[in-house]
Design a binder for these strands. Structure first.
Lengths: 182, 182
DNA sequence: CTCAGCTGAGACATCCGTGTCTCAGCTGAG
DNA sequence: CTCAGCTGAGACACGGATGTCTCAGCTGAG
């Protein structure tokens, strides 16, 4: 019956990714605990949001590590990355929706580090002739994240089947990003 | 020196699309008026947000009209639509970020109407062999809007040049949505 | 000039979300 | 059983954003 910190975080992601202004009552209810207990685990809204943000950025970071961005064809790397990221798409939706999350310098730093890694990956893919050079690498990186967050929202609201989501993201994005072989 | 309603709305879009939880002070300052005057034009935050939402949905509706979704190749239609929508990308970013906007039944109805039109367009494009049928029409429609909002954010924050934005959106999205001629 | 009308600055009341505390009830270990 | 510890429900205080009002200053029409 001990309150599980991870359970609370998961519930918070569930609620906050849909509605970043949700009240603490709602998050507590989603986690199956009382507002008082929620406050015992996280000493306030700010702390909770920050904790969720850290979780999201860590997962994002770990996915970038696991995808091994430097190894193999850019095409294949991106497919690996999508498979790794799609299960955590809700976390990315949270990151996309929580606006003043990056007022925190530590979170901002983490965010920009991961962003730089993704941009560097797309730039490398362009230099190797895999990705189209007419589109700025920064835009490719940003659009990729936008679509990833979009997948998170669509899955949560039942507009996209979880099993289809990796395919939907990869096929749409890669089709637009890859150079035509012709 | 009369307070221009449209000026206020424009300023509100500017601020709220970046930060949906911005205070009324900030919106008033962006519009160059006082909080008191803002409140004279719009009797409260709810009314203001609703008004911006109506504006955004009207523009979206008008763009869909002007693009003439039934006329011509799906490919060309989408290019027309992007050219029409990109100038109002910030409005779409606002729509994407303001979560409880669609608690209002009228706004919800408008939103779903436009969504249905876009989905129907993509479905038609699939039936005509222009768009890939492996991707659900609903996902194409949603991803298109996600990217449109993403363009709005990127332009506002200076990460994407306004003049490049239509090209960036069309090329990336269309590349992923079109069937390969091969 | 004169005055009506509009605006901004500020003060004040109100509401809502949050932070904090208390206490009764439950649970599980001993 | 007994008790320590945890939890939930509720009450209460606090702070911040908003709604409302007043009043002085400015502006432009007549």
């Amino acid at each position: 019956m001990a309150i599980d910190r991870d359970t609370v975080l998961t519930a918070a992601v569930e609620v906050l990714s849909r509605n970043p202004t949700a009240h603490l009552d709602e998050i507590a209810r989603a986690a199956g605990i009382s507002r008082a207990s929620l406050h015992r685990v996280f000493p306030g809204r700010e702390a909770l949001v920050r904790e969720v943000g850290l979780l999201a950025l860590r997962r994002y970071h770990d996915a970038l590590d696991a995808a091994d961005l430097e190894r193999g064809e850019a095409d294949a790397v991106l497919r690996r990355l999508v498979e790794l990221l799609v299960p955590d798409a809700a976390l990315c939706a949270f990151l996309a929706g929580e606006n003043h999350l990056f007022d925190d310098p530590e979170l901002l730093l983490l965010w920009e580090e991961q962003g730089a890694r993704v941009r560097a990956f797309f730039l490398r893919g362009q230099q190797q002739g895999a990705f189209r050079i007419e589109l700025p690498a920064g835009w490719l990186a940003e659009a990729f994240f936008d679509l990833l967050a979009g997948v998170g929202w669509a899955v949560q609201d039942g507009r996209l089947a979880p099993r289809d989501s990796a395919f939907a993201l990869i096929e749409l994005f890669l089709g637009g990003a890859l150079r035509r072989p012709s």
